[in-house]
Design a protein around this nucleic acid. Structure first.
Length: 525
DNA sequence: TCTGTAGTGAGTCGCAAGAT
DNA sequence: ATCTTGCGACTCACTACAGA
């Protein structure tokens, strides 16, 4: 009997008794080793009750394998029912779920990106750039629709995305005025320097192993398609050509970036750092009077990666989001920009970054640390691990009062202090544990916006429907109810889940506001 | 050549609600 | 403590690059 694979989330179950199935994390870990994937039935084909009503004690076979040691008994007698092995099992299951979720997220993102034109086979596209490309394309489409609607005399449609409609509403002058008030404006003579700094900062030239395959595949495909000596754009569809060639390298002449100050220098996590893109996109189909077509690679934000050139016949290129984001359609009177012809030599592209990410499971951690320690000892060049080692072995006295301090924020969210914070606290020099130090930290930590796990869609669903689940399944243990709800949640269509997600968002934001208000009022007092 | 820093992807952890 | 799912924060390994 092969294990049962849940197609939706990749988890596996095995039959403990005829008609009864238990979740088996080990099959999850090694699930990819299954030879005949097609012979594995979907969990949804199972009789619903046989899965849901599986009593927890039917995990006897698992428990038998994980025999209880004397140490486990000590822990149990101390009031902790969960054995270390059970904890490990739970943690591993959670990790597995998280891995699956991560991969699903990445796959979905890649799927969307594959449908959006603008992907350069020569550049490494980070997730930030991916998102910007998607936004740029949506804006482009919205502009096109608006323009068409305007010409056909159709009433202006309000786009569901609100990417443009929200951003455009204010005239540029007014926006700048507001920005002048809100922020300290950078002197004009440093603008060029900042622009250059920003451009360089945006373009990360690193190549990651996870995208290497994609890059190689596309390049191979392009080799096949470019046998007629056409450039890169020959493989693209016509409408994509318009999006790419007529827009991607066009910036309005005399364009002044009102947001160009230190505060808006891009960071990896803030998409809002590129509001200029929305300004550029705010004029549908060539409303911006003049366009500057940029031909050279340097000017359109494409730069060469010198480090990688030694192995590439043609330079590896990265494209700045400045280039990706400018999506205003140029007028047909403008000559199309000269496309850059690349000589494609796929085998020459090599990933200089790591080829695979090692599994970092807590099971491996101990052995990893020891193995890396030995590496550090044998290889003087690896100083990083020596530093890490010192971090592990560092011991400092801990002021209990300092550690036990609990800021107001935890009244609602009793989360533990982050590990980094703990480490920082633990490594405070003893003389800094004075009352003044405590008071200063307490001021800083009063509002901690990182604590944002108030509620999610499933939690809201669970909160609102738990009672009905209990009523329809009297006598069933809560843990089984949770399982049933989890199963029901997975079976729900995303549209059905949406209202719960929205409610959870509202709840989270209201909780945040409440906390902010309370902290402000307490500060006033 | 070495060192520090910034950026990136992947993996991991802890928490939320609720009844028993 | 149990059990679920989702998400923000965090850690780690790795790379490129600037500057000493």
């Amino acid at each position: 009997m092969p294990p049962i694979r849940n197609v939706s989330d990749g988890r596996s179950f095995k039959e403990s008794q005829p008609g009864q199935y238990i979740y088996d994390p080990m099959f999850c870990i090694h699930g990819d080793d299954l030879e005949d994937e097609e012979s594995v039935p979907d969990i949804s084909q199972l009789p619903f009750q046989s899965y849901l009503n599986t009593p927890q004690k039917n995990q006897n076979d698992v428990e038998e394998v994980l025999a209880v040691t004397p140490d486990d008994k000590k822990i149990r007698s101390a009031g902790q029912n969960k054995t270390p092995r059970t904890m490990m099992k739970m943690m591993e299951r959670h990790r597995e779920n998280e891995r699956v979720r991560h991969h699903t997220l990445n796959k979905s993102m890649k799927k969307v990106c594959d449908r959006v034109p603008g992907l350069s086979p020569f550049m490494k596209e980070t997730k930030v750039v991916m998102m910007q490309r998607i936004i740029a394309y949506i804006c482009y489409l919205e502009n096109t629709i608006s323009f068409v609607c305007g010409h056909l005399g159709i009433k202006q449609l309000r786009m569901s995305t609100n990417f443009i409609t929200e951003q455009w509403s204010e005239p540029a002058e007014k926006k700048e005025e507001v920005m002048m008030i809100k922020r300290k404006v950078t002197p004009k003579n440093s603008k060029k320097m900042l622009m250059e700094k920003r451009r360089q900062k945006i373009s990360s030239p690193t190549i990651d192993s996870t995208t290497d395959d994609l890059c190689h595949t596309i390049t191979q495909e392009m080799v096949a398609n470019s046998q007629d000596s056409q450039g890169v754009s020959s493989t693209l569809k016509i409408n994509e050509d318009i999006f790419l060639d007529d827009n991607a390298c066009c910036v309005p002449e005399h364009y002044e970036d009102p947001y160009l100050n230190e505060d808006f220098l891009p960071s990896s996590s803030k998409l809002d750092n590129f509001p200029d893109a929305f300004d550029l996109m705010s004029s549908p189909l060539g409303k911006i009077p003049h366009h500057q077509t940029i031909d050279s690679s340097d000017e359109c934000g494409i730069r060469e990666d010198k480090q990688d050139m030694d192995i590439c016949e043609s330079p590896l290129r990265t494209i700045s989001p400045d280039c990706v984001l400018a999506t205003t359609l140029s007028q047909s009177s403008n000559p199309p920009p000269t496309s850059i012809n690349y000589s494609i030599t796929p085998t020459k592209y090599r990933n200089k970054r790591k080829q695979s990410t090692p599994q970092r499971s807590p099971f491996n951690d101990i052995s990893n640390v020891s193995s890396h320690r030995s590496q550090a000892m044998s290889s003087p060049s690896d100083r990083k691990w020596m530093r890490t080692e010192s971090k592990f072995s560092k011991e400092c006295p801990v002021d209990e009062d300092f550690v036990s301090y609990e800021p107001d924020i935890y009244r609602f969210h009793k989360s533990s202090t982050s590990r980094r914070k703990k480490w920082d606290i633990e490594n405070q020099p003893p003389n800094s544990h004075s009352s003044s130090a405590i008071s200063s930290v307490s001021k800083v930590e009063k509002i901690d916006h990182r604590k944002t796990t108030w509620m999610n869609g499933f939690m809201m669903f669970s909160r609102l429907n738990r009672r009905s689940f209990i009523e329809s399944n009297p006598g069933v243990h809560t843990s089984q109810i949770s399982k049933m709800m989890g199963h029901a949640w997975r079976q729900m269509a995303s549209d059905d889940q949406l209202p719960y997600r929205e409610k959870a968002k509202d709840y989270a934001s209201s909780m945040k506001n409440l906390l902010c208000d309370e902290s402000v009022s307490s500060d006033d007092n």
